[in-house]
Design a protein around this nucleic acid. Structure first.
Length: 720
DNA sequence: AAGGTTAATGTTTTT
DNA sequence: CATTAACCTT
């Protein structure tokens, strides 16, 4: 162990050895965060301060959890058993299963995915007679999720919070949705943390049990915690306070998912006497990359403050960041392709390169270009294995075997493959089920036994129910792998795919084979189902030499020699929609995202922007991102076919006020001069005339005459 | 119950 | 433009 400590720099070592009391480790990008976290974990165990089961270690992703587990085992020189190491959701689920009755669930509850949630909500809305046209279910779902992220169950939501959503009946709707979840013995993702937090809050004996158990708490990516996660941690840390949170406020990029940077900013207040340790020595990137990133992020207010310094021996030298100005998005893709080919010729590997985009649709142009050039690539993100329709169908069958009362699973597969059970049959089934307050399968059984379900639908239902009963027997006798293999054949599912002439049918069959293979890794079907619900990830084979294409969000935590950052244009990055919704706060998050993008690079950054970009149907003029002006010019090398043109004859974006965005040098003075008083009348290109309600620096809250209340940056409006 | 047609709608998505 | 969900027709 001593040798592991010796490999740390003084700050890292401090972060590892300060085991007791609250500790906040502010770990900048590439400063050895994971090393600190894992060494600290191992140190606690080796120093005999706690046994493996007495440390609670929380991450956001399964990947991070897996990595921590492996590295701790490597440090200890043996695999460790009995760890409470996992994602927030996995750990919460594990706790919740132990105390499920306390919130009206049984321990075998099903964890619903986003698709199930939405379908369930639609049903509840229909039952509550709430117009789905006026109140789009995804929007309503979003509100429910936000409440859950903030630890607010239906009982805590006030009419003021609910507003006029769902015609003023939002609270009742939320309560009804929760009621249905409990009736189905199901929990959605938000419930996992909401429910366990509620349990810990209301049951001192349960909380005391965990207090006795957990001597140390380790939290990764603390800047991304939302309110419930924070409440859950605070409850568990109560009393002993041996909590160590690692994070970087400059890399908080998930506020739209409920994350609150304030959690990390407030740490010292929350945990008095907390020790704050800054890791600022960066061992990843060259000096110009660090300087550029630091210069950019310095434009954010309200940071905890941290400056990345080159930590390695080779801190000096390094290429400046290249900025390429191109005419249009196609030329942008071509320019990236050319650079890749040049790098390949000089011996670089594709695996060491990445193209990081702001939005998913941008990847397409690059994919096309890479295909024509014959450059192998991999797109990270997108549809994940367990989200594919055929896999979800198979999972629904499995869920139905484990829980016959799983109505959502039943509905999904009742007519897949076709059994002649359509909307009409399902309607009667639903009516009877509701009247008798019984699951759909049980209702179907009763109706068939009573002889009141005839015709093709009745026949189909009878066959399905008989088959389900048979598979359940097989499950008990032969185990889950054999059962699912048989089920897929006997249900007619594989035949359905074999008969399918569409080009992706063979792939789907292949996926199902993979599904059965994956089943074998688990002892029980229930264990497998938990895995698919909580570990929705794509196993990427990082073996082959391919360039990675992904969003900047997806790239957090990764690193590459060369990073391409295309689409640095106003409206795209920073994203206009984010700005419209979130004002200055959103702009700062966009800036952090840009910071994350740049700091992914070890050696080389190429930022690109196009003067014209095709958005949907038509071409739109675009001007360079303000972030380009915020990076100190000394670290940039400008080039590209549209470079000089852009300077002498700046193009004007249609959706932006002309004067504020015209030339680079004048920009700051213009935006700085623009001040609006409360009550001032203004005009916005898109939303028209309005009145300023509140003005905070350059973030305005504006009541538009036609478009409602919005948060807008001052630079996007002009006096009316 | 199934297939074809139209209309709406386009950021990011760790679990 | 291109995808997807809701709708309408047979």
């Amino acid at each position: 162990m001593a040798e592991h400590l010796a490999r740390l720099n003084p700050e890292q070592r401090m972060a590892v050895e300060t085991t007791d009391g609250p500790v906040l480790v502010l770990a900048g990008a590439g400063t050895g965060k994971t090393r600190v976290l894992t060494t600290r974990f191992a140190h606690i165990l080796l120093a005999g301060k706690a046994s493996p089961g007495q440390v609670l270690a929380v991450t956001f992703t399964n990947k991070a959890a897996r990595e921590m587990r492996e590295r701790v085992a490597a440090l200890l020189g043996r695999p460790v058993e009995g760890l409470w190491l996992g994602t927030f959701h996995a750990l919460a689920a594990r706790m919740l299963r132990r105390h499920a009755e306390l919130v009206g669930l049984s321990p075998q509850f099903t964890i619903l995915d986003a698709d199930d949630q939405l379908r369930l909500l639609k049903q509840v809305m229909e039952a509550e007679r709430i117009d789905a046209k006026r109140w789009p279910p995804p929007l309503v779902m979003g509100q429910i999720q936000r409440w859950k992220d903030r630890g607010e169950g239906p009982a805590r939501v006030t009419p003021a919070m609910a507003g006029d959503l769902a015609g003023g009946r939002m609270i009742a709707l939320y309560a009804a949705y929760q009621g249905r979840l409990k009736a189905l013995n199901a929990a959605d993702f938000g419930d996992l943390l909401l429910d366990i937090t509620e349990i810990l809050r209301n049951n001192p004996d349960v909380l005391a049990q965990y207090h006795r158990q957990f001597r140390y708490i380790l939290v990764d990516e603390y800047q991304d915690t939302n309110v419930v996660q924070y409440l859950w941690l605070r409850l568990l840390a109560q009393g002993r306070h041996n909590i160590c949170c690692v994070g970087d406020d400059d890399q908080s990029i998930y506020s739209w998912r409920g994350a609150e940077v304030e959690n990390i900013l407030r740490f010292e207040k929350d945990f008095p006497g907390a020790k704050v340790i800054r890791l600022e020595r960066n061992y990843r990137s060259t000096a110009p990359i660090l300087a550029a990133a630091s210069g950019l992020i310095a434009h954010n207010a309200g940071r905890l403050g941290k400056t990345l310094r080159p930590g390695g021996a080779g801190g000096e030298g390094g290429e400046k960041l290249a900025v390429l100005s191109l005419w249009d998005s196609e030329e942008e893709a071509r320019a990236v392709g050319e650079r890749i080919e040049t790098l390949l010729k000089s011996g670089d590997s594709l695996a060491a390169m990445a193209i990081l985009v702001r939005a998913g649709f941008q990847t397409r142009a690059f994919e096309e270009r890479l295909i024509t050039l014959g450059i192998p690539y991999r797109v990270i993100g997108g549809l994940r294995f367990y989200e594919r329709a055929e896999i979800r169908d198979a999972i629904a069958y499995a869920r139905l075997l484990v829980q016959p009362g799983d109505d959502l699973a039943f509905e999904r597969i009742v007519n897949v493959p076709r059994r002649g059970i359509g909307a009409a049959a399902m309607k009667t089934l639903h009516e009877h089920a509701r009247a008798a307050d019984m699951p759909l399968t049980k209702t179907a059984e009763n109706l068939l036994a009573a002889g009141s379900f005839r015709g093709r639908a009745g026949e189909g239902l009878r066959t399905l129910l008989a088959a389900l009963a048979m598979w359940r027997e097989t499950l008990a006798r032969e185990g889950h792998v054999m059962t699912m293999r048989q089920l897929l054949d006997e249900s007619g599912y594989t035949d359905m795919l074999k008969a399918d002439k569409s080009p992706d049918a063979p792939g789907r069959l292949e996926n199902l084979k993979e599904f059965v293979r994956a089943l074998a890794d688990f002892e029980t079907l229930a264990g497998f189902l938990d895995h698919v619900a909580l570990v929705m990830e794509n196993e990427e084979n990082a073996e082959s030499d391919k360039i990675s294409l992904m969003t900047v969000h997806a790239a957090k935590g990764l690193e590459f020699d060369t990073v391409f950052l295309p689409g640095w244009e106003e409206g795209l990055f920073p994203n206009q929609r984010a700005l419209d919704e979130g004002g200055v706060k959103a702009l700062e998050e966009e800036r952090r995202l840009a910071y994350v993008g740049i700091t992914r690079a070890r050696k080389r950054v190429i930022i690109l922007h196009a003067a014209q970009r095709r958005i949907y149907a038509n071409w739109q003029d675009s001007i360079p991102s303000r972030f380009l002006d915020e990076i100190p010019e000394e670290w940039l090398t400008r080039g590209g076919s549209a470079h000089s043109v852009r300077v002498s004859r700046p193009r004007v974006a249609t959706s932006f006020p002309r004067d504020a965005r015209a030339g680079t040098p004048a920009r700051h003075t213009l935006t700085a001069r623009r001040r609006f008083a409360e009550g001032a009348r203004i005009f916005h290109e898109k939303f028209g005339h309005g009145t300023v309600i509140t003005a905070e620096n350059d973030s305005l809250e504006i009541a538009f005459d036609a478009a409602g209340v919005k948060h807008i940056l001052a630079q996007f409006v002009e006096p009316a």
